[in-house]
Design a protein around this nucleic acid. Structure first.
Length: 682
RNA sequence: GCGCCUGUAGCUCAGCGGAUAGAGCACUUGCCUCCGGAGCAAGGGGCCGCAGGUUCAAUUCCUGCCAGGCGCACCA
């Protein structure tokens, strides 16, 4: 029986016992973890609530402690429960059978997490869209927060045995791509061939996406008219509109150039993400949403269901709008959302609704696909295309058609996301608003100190602010690859001094794993609704509450098992499993002097699945990150207090080995769900 | 103006009905006779923004106020 099941059983038992003894019971009985191990493994403050319920039902006043005393007996007979105490003003504190629980935990093998075949998989599919960076420049740390959150959420769902499809939306026909295209065509006066040649000549230090990053900021200046070669701002902005139009239209030189620029940036961004262990199943592009007429189909659906209507009067006259009464407005239609403009073009929101309908399998159309990338381990990523599928479609998975969609998007997009959610629910009331989840998170901003470190001039006003927003348009931000490079080189320096015996390849790989651990943990330890004011010192730290700290604990635990001979491990397993049958003196170790502290680590490690479930249910990776850190911290304490290999007393040694083993296994699993590897040495 | 989010230790953040409010950083002081010090231990440091209310119980829920952030386009 797992810890989770036991806790559920106990909650049910409390309810049943209460209604039997008093004729009343709370709707739900929740157990909680006591503040200290000495207070037990699970606590029910249910007697307080019962006192009130009994008074309401019978008018009788009863002391919570007396109520708890009366329930005690019913819980003591539950298997795996060693004893129950009434504590404080009326808490029911449950103490688990430590020996039996440890034997179970120790017997759990990794083989239990066997994966199911994806083709015959009947589980409902969850869609997670993340990253979705405009393909016109390099990724910065704000984008990385999105990607790491999304990727970690996926890993957590999978650890919770859910089926997931990962999408990275590519807005290849938007203004941001158009801006860079304007830069290439009208500032640099380049043709597609020139750009290809340029691309080939770029160094690894300043690859294509970095080049575009710089060009993008120059385009901003160009529009503002700071460029001294004649044209006016209006003429330049007209260039943007024309370029955007040509790109949307397709089948022209500008669109071809844009396609090259966008695709190359997607490649660069995917390379950056690969460094962090982040991959995707499919890359749906906006160009296909346009050219395969997804919007037309969605438009029909929306008209047929009366979700949108043609406004004939007022300021929205000539537009198709979605009624959207929010707060109190003086004008009845003030808050209506325009979906089709008076010139007949569709807004971004409209396209987004069409795309969201496709994700849920409700549109009645599908993309065509081509293989975009095959990773060294054969994993594939697909991209949508306008051209019909070639024979390769036989080998590809089926995309789309999920039951729930999670969109990992900045909290600033809450309003448009709400419109999409309502629009989809209006078209398909059978799935409702619950099918669309906006996984919102706050931005990554720069601390004033970080800005100064980047050599950015700050006004006095800015300096007084808590943080300064990044801006791709202004080129203000920390590029992801720059930060990863710095983390890797810092880590490499440490590894070189600590482990000169390792080969260069091993040192580099270890440094990489540490760098990824540091960055991912740094971005995950904050809850989603906290603005991260990026600070170099904090982000580059390997000490304290960091990824490397957690990795280090796992590495230490592993090194014990590397030194421990097979006979000793076998002996420990036998002693623990015999103890599960009631043989030997393992109980003396767990219940005796210092037993609480050893047990507290075992039970904490045993709560991993609970932490994963909670993290998944709340869509909050920070919960798992905190759990992982606490487990690592508890292990380090344990490691410091006990000599494991040299322990003379056999039952005690067996317990220490078993607890250490359970901890390292679950610490490794927890880190894996955070996308963090455990190095061989560090 | 309207809506959403946030005010917790010097700093950065967890906790969001329950027992003595926690962690990291920073500061002070100890710990390498070692399964690795990216570590461990100890210490100082808190009107949990303010004021009401609900509750057996409020940092946690409700209301008001104060302070900060972000949204409210025929932009994406």
């Amino acid at each position: 029986m797992s810890l989770e099941n036991l806790q559920e059983t106990l909650s049910e038992r409390v309810r049943a016992a209460a209604s039997e003894a008093f004729g009343v019971a709370p709707e739900q009985v929740n157990g909680e973890i006591p503040p200290k191990t000495e207070m037990g493994d699970l606590a029910f403050p249910v007697a307080f609530e019962l006192a009130k319920l009994i008074k309401q039902a019978t008018g009788e006043k009863r002391a919570p402690r007396a109520i708890a005393e009366q329930l005690k007996a019913a819980l003591e007979i539950v298997p795996r429960v060693a004893r129950v105490e009434v504590a404080g003003a009326g808490y029911l504190n449950i103490f688990f059978d430590r020996v039996a629980m440890l034997a179970e935990l120790a017997a759990t093998t990794e083989a239990e997490t066997a994966s199911l075949s994806s083709d015959t998989d009947a589980r409902p599919k969850r869609m997670v869209e993340h990253t979705s960076i405009n393909p016109n420049k390099a990724a910065h740390i704000g984008h990385v927060r999105n990607a790491v959150l999304g990727d970690t959420f996926v890993r957590i769902l999978r650890a919770a045995d859910e089926r997931v499809e990962i999408q990275n939306y590519i807005d290849n026909t938007g203004v941001q791509v158009a801006d860079v295209v304007v830069g290439f065509m009208h500032i640099e006066h380049m043709t597609l061939e020139d750009i290809r040649a340029l691309d080939r000549s770029l160094s690894a230090e300043r690859p294509f996406d970095y080049y575009c990053w710089d060009l993008y900021t120059r385009v901003g200046l160009f529009y503002r008219g700071d460029d001294p070669n004649g044209e006016t701002n209006q003429e330049r902005l007209k260039l943007r509109a024309e370029t955007l139009h040509a790109i949307e239209e397709g089948n022209n030189p500008t669109a071809e150039l844009a396609e090259y620029v966008a695709t190359r940036n997607v490649e660069c961004i995917l390379d950056t993400m690969e460094r962090l262990g982040i991959r995707y199943d499919v890359l749906p592009r906006e160009s296909e949403i346009l050219h395969l007429h997804f919007w037309d189909k969605a438009f029909e659906n929306m008209k047929a269901k009366g979700v949108i209507f043609f406004q004939t009067e007022g300021r929205n006259a000539g537009c198709w709008v979605m009624p959207f009464e929010t707060h109190t407005g003086t004008d009845e239609h003030e808050a209506d959302k325009i979906i089709v403009r008076s010139n007949g073009t569709v807004t971004y929101t409209g396209k987004d609704i069409a795309y969201q309908l496709w994700k849920l399998g409700l549109l009645g159309l599908d993309f065509n696909y081509r293989l975009f990338r095959t990773y060294p381990d054969e994993q594939t990523t697909w991209m949508t295309t306008t051209e019909p599928d070639d024979a390769s479609h036989l080998a590809r998975p089926h995309f789309g058609g999920g039951t729930v969609v999670y969109n990992v998007i900045d909290t600033r997009q809450s309003y448009p996301q709400e419109i999409v959610r309502r629009g989809v629910a209006a078209v398909a009331p059978e799935v409702g608003e619950e099918a669309s989840v906006h996984l919102a998170y706050e931005m990554v901003a720069l601390s004033p100190a970080a800005c100064e470190e980047l050599g950015i001039q700050l006004t006095d006003e800015d300096r007084a602010r808590p943080y300064i927003e990044m801006s791709g348009r202004k080129g203000l931000g920390v590029k992801a690859d720059d930060l990863i490079n710095r983390l890797e080189s810092d880590a490499l320096k440490e590894v070189e001094t600590r482990h000169p015996e390792l080969s260069e390849e091993e040192r580099t790989r270890t440094a990489h794993q540490i760098a990824v651990g540091a960055l991912r943990y740094f971005l995950l330890k904050f809850t989603r609704n906290t603005v991260i004011a990026f600070d170099f010192k904090e982000a580059l730290s390997f000490e304290g509450e960091t990824g490397p700290y957690c990795q280090y604990a796992a590495v230490r635990a592993n090194s014990i098992f590397r030194k421990l001979d097979d006979a000793a491990q076998r002996e420990a397993r036998e002693i623990i499993s015999a103890a599960g049958e009631g043989v030997g003196d393992v109980a003396g170790v767990l219940e005796g002097e210092g037993g609480d502290e050893i047990w507290s680590l075992a039970v904490l490690a045993g709560r991993l699945d609970e932490a994963i479930a909670q993290s998944a249910a709340q869509a909050e990776p920070a919960i798992l990150a905190k759990y992982t850190f606490n487990l690592a911290r508890a292990f380090n304490l344990f490691y410091h207090r006990h000599r494991i290999i040299t322990e003379e007393n056999a039952p005690r040694r067996a317990v220490l080995i078993a607890v250490c083993d359970v901890t390292r296994r679950n610490l490794t699993r927890a880190l894996a769900a955070l996308g963090i590897e455990v190095p061989e040495r560090m």
